[in-house]
Design a binder for these strands. Structure first.
Length: 897
RNA sequence: GGGUGGUUAGCUCAGUUGGUUAGAGCGUUGCGUUGACAUCGCAAAGGUCGUAGGUUCGAGUCCUAUACCACCCACCA
């Protein structure tokens, strides 16, 4: 006998259940290449977890992907596939370095005080201390991943993979080093990639000024700029070749304000004649377009910025000033010299660093780059060939678009935390050595004076290798051979370019295989008003708090059911609360079922004929199982969850359990088989629900199992109880029989009658406890009604002895309240009901509604619909019309009495 | 400038081969402790599915145009 507490207290179960799962090894694939009896022919199901940053405290975005992946993993595990989910964390170069620098700052230290080695050590310390926090929180979410295979992007093995990848790309000529225009982050003091720059619209100024001709004629070319300080780096002024205003000036020299350098006027058709003054100052050192123009015209390139965005010695009198100070000062000086024409307010698109938020400066710098076009084309081809599909599909186009316009990727970062670039420079002969392992001497001159490139690689360089580096690549390990390529990549659409695209390119390049066959993309989580959550807005919802207050299952269910693939999702505590109620509902369904089983008694020798209710709930359950299977195969987890929820609450709890109470009270074989039926439905539904709410289902299922065994209930068609729900068999599709539909149809009629009677009771304010007498009349359904009399009485509050069922209307119905459901007439004996007028009005209203439906259907069936629509659809409408007609006629009769 | 998503009940959202009275949760209103559940039950109110055209026997669902919101890509000084 199991007595469960009245409400589900998740605190009692979550931690314990998780520990139990893990200790029993359920998170590990049952078919493992490192174990005896391994069968390589069985296809595994594999997900590699998008590694969260070690800096991260768990946020709802993590909670969403963990819940989603865990759902997919649990589903496949229950289907019996060897299932592996590889967890891990990312070293997150910039983010982590900043975090540690912040910590140092509190001690009054800068990283330079420590020096590189000590600083790196400090970061490792930090990682030891805080890096496990996030994985601990992921456990709390119920993630059933194989923690023995946990990886970190800076692990020795994965670092080796990074060097291997770098060297291979270099040897193929796909990695090169050179001066290029890059995005420089003065705050972070490093180069960043194009993807790490965000543009924000901000009000600013367009400055108009004079570029005086060098010939002293006093003539000038008017030029406009948004960044006056870059004037100091100008090496030409460009005009459109066919611009009549300036044509004659092409080839002449003009003078750079203040510093007096003479530069040429050139012609280039990049210049738009209509924009600004039609003349463009060219700063090849600090503008991507100017850089290209400079290349075309062989212009010199002047860098005016230091790494911290102060001006350097090329800025003459402004050297040492911050870029914005210099802008102000220079403009004042130019005004004093009469070079200023005007200022105009102007909407700027300011490039800002995604991380630090400060303004990015484009400048020319020597960095390492990956040549992308050939990699991208290969990736695109693979997707076109269907080797990888995106869910939802629309992201395929976005993917192609990026691949077609891809730029080379700047991969070097001027940071200390990350994968050091595996390149050494000979201090004697200047040779560049690119190697997998640290070289001892220069292969060219033999010198041992080698210095490694000080830079590290973009964090995403190692992330791109993740799907295979976690399995030991470049070694052909047994894990790599069995588990790679993986199955599904589940992640947010916001990192398609950063990560998904690069994984695909890298995998094809290095392993020759697509790294996964499906990319499932989820959306971004927002607050209840659709705004992005941010600390400054103060609208951040902490998943840990939610879990603590409402339970992990409630949070998971909310995230899983509230989202549609690829769409953003608004989350509020209210929603989680609603699902907390659902977990409690499930708990109480279990509580009821288990107590029924405990009282089931001895197995009787004969099995009674199933009631309509029994057949109905079973048929409905089969429908749900089949739907859920279909939906899962199409990644429609939200809809599947909703159907499970609806079935459990609205069909099973609200109707069937209520009905079962009477069946249980009847005792004997009826009670026994009712309990058995309850157990079977609950067992099946817990299986379906488990991937969503693993804890409450696991807890309940073990009680259910215990009770069933104690009661000696059979488990067929299964041969016995599994060890635990997490490894229990997933419900396969059922074959639906045509009588299933009949059960559902018949039962719906009973439901409609019950609802109709309840409705009237409510209208007439009849106390729920008060039983009513009733007369039911139906020519054709009398047998069905008779068989369901008890159900009707129980659910609609009718007095059993005063409830009569006829095929013909008796005469003594005077003064009873009536209603019509299809061809069934119901007369309720309501003493002390309202006046006849009100009753008349009610019937007339109903009649009106029916008549409008009838005329609608008559018109429909008289039109071309009858000829053109499929016969099945037309017949259904005809049948409906017939039903309405019968009902109308009955109401008319009642009105005429 | 190019592209994507959204616009459905007071609020937050479902609605995948177009099928004919459009669904849920929350909120609202009225009743209520029958052998699990007040984290509950019963009943009810509430929507011309952004707008305008079109295709079709039939459109929330497909096509065209358009408005507004959000986002992505590109970045004309």
């Amino acid at each position: 006998m199991t007595e469960l507490p009245k409400s589900y207290d998740f605190h009692d179960y979550e931690e314990k259940i998780y520990r139990d799962w893990e200790s029993k090894g359920y998170f590990k694939p049952w078919n493992d290449p490192n174990k005896l009896g391994f069968d390589p022919t069985i296809q595994p199901f594999v997900i590699v977890m998008p590694p969260p940053n070690i800096t991260g405290a768990l946020h709802l975005g993590h909670a969403l992907f963990v819940a989603m992946e865990d759902l997919i993993i649990r589903y496949h595990r229950m289907k019996g596939e060897p299932t592996l989910w590889v967890p891990g964390t990312d070293h997150a170069g910039i983010a982590t370095q900043l975090q540690v620098e912040k910590q140092l700052a509190k001690e009054g230290l800068a990283k330079a005080d420590l020096g590189r080695e000590a600083f790196e050590q400090r970061v490792w310390q930090w990682k030891e201390q805080y890096g496990s926090q996030i994985t601990q929180q992921i456990r709390q979410l119920g993630a059933s991943c194989d923690w023995e295979r946990e990886r970190f992007t800076l692990d020795p093995g994965l670092s080796r993979a990074v060097r291997e990848a770098f060297v291979r790309l270099y040897e193929k000529g796909l990695i090169y080093r050179g001066p290029r225009m890059i995005n420089w982050s003065p705050g972070l003091m490093t180069a960043v990639s194009d993807l790490e720059v965000e543009y924000s619209e901000e009000p600013g100024t367009l400055y108009y000024f004079k570029y005086m001709l060098a010939d002293g004629s006093g003539e000038y070319i008017p030029v406009a700029t948004t960044r006056p300080e870059t004037i100091l780096g100008d090496t030409a002024v460009a005009v459109h070749p066919e611009d009549p205003r300036y044509q004659k000036l092409v080839g002449k020299q003009v003078v750079v304000p203040i510093i007096g350098r003479a530069i040429p006027v050139i012609a280039d058709d990049y210049v738009e004649r209509e924009f600004g003054t039609g003349a463009l100052k060219i700063t090849p050192g600090h503008d991507p377009h100017d850089y290209e123009i400079g290349q075309r015209h062989n212009l010199p390139l002047i860098n005016i910025l230091n790494k911290d965005a102060t001006l350097n010695e090329n800025a003459g009198p402004y050297a040492g000033l911050d870029r914005f100070e210099a802008r102000k000062k220079l403009w004042e000086d130019m005004r004093a010299q009469g070079l200023v024409i005007k200022e105009e307010s102007y909407m700027l698109n300011v490039p800002r660093s995604m991380r630090g938020g400060e303004i990015i400066e484009p400048l020319v710098s020597t960095q390492w780059f990956v040549k992308m076009d050939s990699l991208a084309q290969k990736a695109k081809t693979a997707v076109e060939a269907g080797e990888i599909i995106f869910v939802p599909e629309r992201f395929t186009k976005i993917f192609y678009n990026w691949m077609d316009n891809i730029q080379d990727w700047c991969i070097s970062r001027q940071l200390w935390w990350g994968h050091r670039i595996p390149v050494w420079y000979c201090q004697d002969c200047g040779e560049t050595i690119v190697a997998r392992e640290t070289p001892t001497h220069c292969p060219k001159c033999g010198s041992s004076r080698l210095e490694q490139d000080p830079d590290v690689l973009d964090t995403w360089f190692s992330s791109g290798l993740w799907p295979f580096s976690v399995f030991g690549w470049p070694d052909e390990t047994s894990d790599y051979k069995y588990f790679y390529p993986t199955s599904v990549m589940e992640t947010g659409y916001d990192i398609i370019f950063f990560w998904v695209a690069r994984m695909i390119m890298d995998a094809l390049e290095f392993t020759g295989k697509a790294p996964f066959h499906t990319v499932y993309l989820h959306g971004i989580i927002r607050d209840e008003n659709g705004e992005k959550m941010s600390k400054t807005k103060g609208n951040v919802i902490d998943p840990l708090e939610l879990m603590d207050a409402m339970g992990t299952d409630a949070l998971r269910f909310t995230l899983l059911v509230g989202s549609t693939p690829g769409n953003d999702m608004n989350v509020s505590a209210k929603k989680v609360e609603a699902n907390r109620n659902f977990t409690n509902k499930v708990w109480n369904i279990g509580r009821f079922v288990i107590s029924a089983i405990d009282r089931a008694g001895e197995k009787p020798t004969t099995e009674p004929i199933s009631t309509l209710s029994d057949s109905w709930i079973w048929a409905r359950m089969k429908q749900v199982v089949n739907n859920v299977n279909d939906l899962f195969e199409n990644y429609q987890f939200g809809e599947a969850g909703r159907q499970i929820y609806e079935f459990l609450w609205n069909d099973f709890a609200d109707w069937y359990i209520e009905i079962s109470k009477r069946q249980l009270a009847q005792g004997g074989s009826r009670a026994y088989f009712t309990a058995f039926g309850l157990a079977r439905v609950l067992d099946t539904m817990l299986r379906l629900l488990h991937p969503y709410t693993p804890f409450v289902t696991e807890a309940l299922w073990s009680y259910l199992k215990e009770s069933c065994i104690a009661a000696g209930l059979p488990t067929e068609p299964r041969s016995g109880w599994e060890e635990a729900l997490i490894v229990a068999k997933w419900p396969d599709r059922y074959a639906m029989d045509n009588w299933d539909e009949e059960f559902i149809k018949d039962f719906s009629l009973i439901q409609e009658i019950v609802r109709g009677i309840r409705n009237i009771r409510s209208e007439y304010k009849i106390a729920p406890a008060r039983k009513l007498g009733a007369v039911l009349v139906s020519e054709n359904l009398q047998i069905l009604l008779e068989s369901q009399k008890l159900v009707l009485c129980d659910l609609a509050g009718l007095e059993e002895e005063d409830t009569l069922i006829y095929t013909r209307k008796p005469d003594d119905l005077e003064g009873m309240v009536s209603l019509v459901v299809n061809e069934v007439e119901v007369f309720l004996n309501i003493v002390g009901r309202g006046d006849d007028e009100a009753e008349r009005a009610r019937l007339e209203k109903e009649l009106q509604e029916l008549e409008s439906q009838i005329s609608r259907l008559e018109a429909l069936l008289a039109g071309p619909f009858a000829q053109k629509a499929p016969a099945k659809i037309v017949d259904a409408e005809r049948e409906k019309l017939e039903g309405y007609r019968v009902s109308t006629q009955k109401i008319r009769e009642q009105l005429s009495q």
